[in-house]
Design a protein around this nucleic acid. Structure first.
Lengths: 243, 243
DNA sequence: AAGTGGTCTAGACCACTCT
DNA sequence: GAGTGGTCTAGACCACTTG
């Protein structure tokens, strides 16, 4: 371990070097996602730094959302958990006023040619082909959100062999199980669209819609999914905290 | 100092007790906002805890946005800085494509009776009177945002003596100078509105608008301002990062 | 009982700012 | 050069989880 990394050689603080190295191991070393990563004691010996330095490195990874600590059990790789996020932007109350878990359904999957715009977003060569998905999200059998999803063929080709009925409710855990691709973070851009008629939402042409463009990234911050979601603007509701 | 606080008496971790105590001193002790707060060494002696514990307490206050550290100079109370935030939600490019600092103008100030809804939001007695402001925000002389603002009379009465021409571009630093009220954080709720005609935006009645409702709070998390802002939905654009 | 992360201490030296 | 926060160490004991 000590030979494999050249700590103390850069200008970066020690805990930053350790953080970056652990971050790489998270994606490359294939640690079991249900088992704790090595303990702080072990890491401290591995890297030959004090335990306080390890703690600071891990603290940053926890802040980044890559790891979670559980006292008495250990430190674990965080599983994808924000899969329900497009629904964050839309209010919905069922008859009883309770919050309901929305259902996701893939309606179409296809293999398509890449194009300059999409492949630039996904940071892949222009000639690489893409997988294209259409998906809806329902609450109480009402279609709340319509989605188009683009994925790099090189990472997700195995999805093409799966019938759309077999796609699970939440896509991100499904990506991980089927393709070993782990979504760790995302950037979403919200804007407002008029004069667009979505075939799934079945909205009136003049009815305003909210458009959410999402670039989802893996643990190394490489984009691996691009998604556009539409929903009725009238249902839009979002809360944000500012400091 | 040691007598004035009873550390070690609660179940809270030491650094949490210290954090809470320093947080109270920030609003009550009237430290000069341009001078550093006591050094970590001094605080460590004051509270009779190790310097590591002080550092952890201060670290939390920095994360909360209450303090900023500057290496070599000291730790300072953070001045209000998110004053331009309603404009975060609206895209605007001037002729040169550069980003422009919007201008804020108060158009009306009045003293009004409290009501159940507003006084509940501001967490003040129903009978307390309010100060009501109307304000616009311009970019290149175009009105981008129209705002209504409500303030508790008890904290902001001195504003009534100031002619509206004297109100400054940014309100939060102005609140601090005139009324010693410091905005430290805020919660904003976004939604779409149709069929509302705003007198300043001069929008068509059918034109959809974005409504931003903000509750702004002081350093002790008490709400001291409620604000509703409207802008054209077509100009809406917002980016959010998810982990 | 053993092992994990959580809290806390008491130092050391470094990088930066100001005078 | 003096003083600030930034980094790093090498321990100690506590709270929690699991066998």
């Amino acid at each position: 371990m000590l030979d494999s990394i050249a700590l103390h050689n850069f200008k970066l603080p020690l805990y930053e070097q350790v953080r970056l190295h652990i971050q790489k191991r998270l994606s490359h070393d294939k640690w079991d996602i249900n088992q704790p990563i090595p303990t702080e004691q072990e890491l401290s010996q591995d890297y030959n730094v004090s335990i306080g330095t390890i703690r600071k490195a891990i603290e940053r990874l926890v802040e980044e959302g890559l790891l979670i600590k559980i006292q008495g059990k250990g430190t674990f790789i965080r599983k994808p958990s924000f899969s329900a996020s497009p629904m964050r932007f839309f209010r919905y109350r069922n008859a009883e006023g309770a919050s309901v878990e929305p259902i996701g359904q893939v309606k179409k999957i296809a293999q398509i040619a890449g194009n300059a715009t999409l492949n630039t977003i996904l940071q892949i060569p222009t000639q690489e082909r893409l997988i294209y998905l259409e998906r809806i999200r329902l609450v109480d059998n009402i279609i709340m959100v319509s989605e188009k999803i683009w994925l790099p063929m090189s990472l997700f080709s195995s999805l093409l062999e799966i019938p759309i009925q077999k796609f699970e409710n939440l896509l991100y855990p499904f990506y991980y199980k089927q393709c070993n691709q782990f979504i760790a973070s995302a950037t979403e851009n919200l804007s407002f669209i008029q004069h667009y008629q979505d075939p799934y939402l079945n909205n009136a042409i003049h009815e305003p819609l909210l458009k959410v463009c999402r670039i989802a990234k893996n643990i190394e911050h490489m984009p691996i999914e691009y998604r556009e979601s539409w929903g009725r603007a009238i249902d839009f509701n979002y809360e944000v905290h500012i400091i």
